[in-house]
Protein backbone atom coordinates (compact mmCIF):
# COMPACT_ATOMS: atom_id res chain seq x y z
CA UNK A 1 0.00 0.00 0.00
CA UNK A 2 1.44 3.33 -1.00
CA UNK A 3 1.97 6.02 1.57
CA UNK A 4 2.68 9.72 1.60
CA UNK A 5 4.44 11.38 4.53
CA UNK A 6 1.87 13.24 6.59
CA UNK A 7 4.18 16.24 7.09
CA UNK A 8 4.43 16.81 3.35
CA UNK A 9 0.68 17.18 3.02
CA UNK A 10 0.51 19.57 5.96
CA UNK A 11 3.54 21.45 4.64
CA UNK A 12 1.74 22.01 1.35
CA UNK A 13 -1.31 23.31 3.20
CA UNK A 14 0.83 25.62 5.34
CA UNK A 15 2.70 26.95 2.28
CA UNK A 16 -0.48 27.73 0.38
CA UNK A 17 -1.94 29.36 3.50
CA UNK A 18 1.10 31.61 3.94
CA UNK A 19 1.07 32.57 0.25
CA UNK A 20 -2.58 33.58 0.60
CA UNK A 21 -1.67 35.54 3.72
CA UNK A 22 1.03 37.45 1.83
CA UNK A 23 -1.55 38.25 -0.85
CA UNK A 24 -4.06 39.58 1.69
CA UNK A 25 -1.46 41.77 3.37
CA UNK A 26 0.17 43.20 0.28
CA UNK A 27 -2.50 43.87 -2.33
CA UNK A 28 -4.56 47.02 -2.54
CA UNK A 29 -7.05 45.80 -5.10
CA UNK A 30 -10.04 44.36 -3.24
CA UNK A 31 -10.59 41.60 -5.81
CA UNK A 32 -7.05 40.33 -5.16
CA UNK A 33 -7.64 40.43 -1.41
CA UNK A 34 -10.76 38.29 -1.82
CA UNK A 35 -8.86 35.89 -4.10
CA UNK A 36 -6.11 35.52 -1.50
CA UNK A 37 -8.76 34.79 1.13
CA UNK A 38 -10.02 32.00 -1.11
CA UNK A 39 -6.49 30.63 -1.32
CA UNK A 40 -6.31 30.56 2.47
CA UNK A 41 -9.67 28.80 2.77
CA UNK A 42 -8.65 26.22 0.22
CA UNK A 43 -5.38 25.61 2.06
CA UNK A 44 -7.15 24.96 5.36
CA UNK A 45 -9.50 22.59 3.53
CA UNK A 46 -6.46 20.78 2.18
CA UNK A 47 -5.14 20.40 5.74
CA UNK A 48 -8.44 18.82 6.76
CA UNK A 49 -8.42 16.39 3.82
CA UNK A 50 -4.84 15.32 4.46
CA UNK A 51 -5.54 14.83 8.16
CA UNK A 52 -8.70 12.84 7.39
CA UNK A 53 -6.71 10.66 5.03
CA UNK A 54 -4.12 10.04 7.74
CA UNK A 55 -6.75 8.59 10.06
CA UNK A 56 -8.57 6.78 7.26
CA UNK A 57 -12.09 8.11 7.89
CA UNK A 58 -14.38 10.34 5.90
CA UNK A 59 -14.54 13.05 8.56
CA UNK A 60 -11.96 15.23 6.85
CA UNK A 61 -14.00 15.21 3.67
CA UNK A 62 -17.17 16.16 5.57
CA UNK A 63 -15.33 19.10 7.12
CA UNK A 64 -14.10 20.13 3.69
CA UNK A 65 -17.70 20.16 2.46
CA UNK A 66 -18.57 22.55 5.25
CA UNK A 67 -15.59 24.75 4.36
CA UNK A 68 -16.67 24.71 0.72
CA UNK A 69 -20.17 25.86 1.70
CA UNK A 70 -18.66 28.60 3.85
CA UNK A 71 -16.41 29.75 1.01
CA UNK A 72 -19.33 29.92 -1.42
CA UNK A 73 -21.46 32.02 0.94
CA UNK A 74 -18.51 34.27 1.76
CA UNK A 75 -17.65 34.84 -1.89
CA UNK A 76 -21.25 35.73 -2.70
CA UNK A 77 -21.43 38.34 0.05
CA UNK A 78 -17.90 39.60 -0.64
CA UNK A 79 -18.57 40.12 -4.33
CA UNK A 80 -21.76 42.00 -3.47
CA UNK A 81 -19.67 44.26 -1.26
CA UNK A 82 -17.14 44.76 -4.07
CA UNK A 83 -19.95 45.83 -6.39
CA UNK A 84 -21.19 48.33 -3.78
CA UNK A 85 -17.66 49.67 -3.28
CA UNK A 86 -17.28 50.23 -7.00
CA UNK A 87 -20.69 51.90 -7.26
CA UNK A 88 -20.03 54.34 -4.46
CA UNK A 89 -16.34 55.16 -4.86
CA UNK A 90 -15.74 54.37 -8.55
CA UNK A 91 -12.54 52.57 -7.57
CA UNK A 92 -11.45 49.18 -6.23
CA UNK A 93 -8.72 50.56 -4.00
CA UNK A 94 -9.33 49.51 -0.39
CA UNK A 95 -7.54 52.60 0.89
CA UNK A 96 -10.60 54.74 0.16
CA UNK A 97 -12.43 52.87 2.93
CA UNK A 98 -11.09 55.14 5.66
CA UNK A 99 -14.28 56.66 7.09
CA UNK A 100 -13.66 55.03 10.49
CA UNK A 101 -10.12 56.32 10.72
CA UNK A 102 -9.53 58.26 13.91
Amino acid sequence: MESIPFEHGLMLAATLFCLGLIGVMTRRNIVFVLMSLEIMLNASGLAFIVSGSRWGGADGQVMFLMILTLAAAEVAVGLGLIIQLYKRFKTIDIDVLSALKG
Partner: peptide, 27 residues
Protein backbone atom coordinates in the same frame (compact mmCIF):
# COMPACT_ATOMS: atom_id res chain seq x y z
CA UNK B 1 7.38 42.84 5.50
CA UNK B 2 4.42 40.58 4.61
CA UNK B 3 6.82 37.94 3.27
CA UNK B 4 8.89 38.05 6.46
CA UNK B 5 5.79 37.74 8.64
CA UNK B 6 4.38 34.88 6.58
CA UNK B 7 7.78 33.16 6.59
CA UNK B 8 7.87 33.32 10.39
CA UNK B 9 4.38 31.81 10.48
CA UNK B 10 5.41 29.11 8.03
CA UNK B 11 8.43 28.18 10.11
CA UNK B 12 6.30 27.96 13.25
CA UNK B 13 3.74 25.78 11.47
CA UNK B 14 6.40 23.52 10.02
CA UNK B 15 8.00 22.95 13.39
CA UNK B 16 4.77 21.61 14.85
CA UNK B 17 3.94 18.79 12.42
CA UNK B 18 3.66 15.27 13.82
CA UNK B 19 5.53 12.64 11.86
CA UNK B 20 3.39 9.91 10.38
CA UNK B 21 2.96 7.98 7.19
CA UNK B 22 -0.44 8.27 5.55
CA UNK B 23 -1.55 4.95 4.14
CA UNK B 24 -3.57 5.87 1.11
CA UNK B 25 -6.99 4.32 1.54
CA UNK B 26 -9.55 5.48 -0.93
CA UNK B 27 -12.53 6.86 0.98
Amino acid sequence: VPSVLAAVLLMQLTASFPAAQTQIVEV
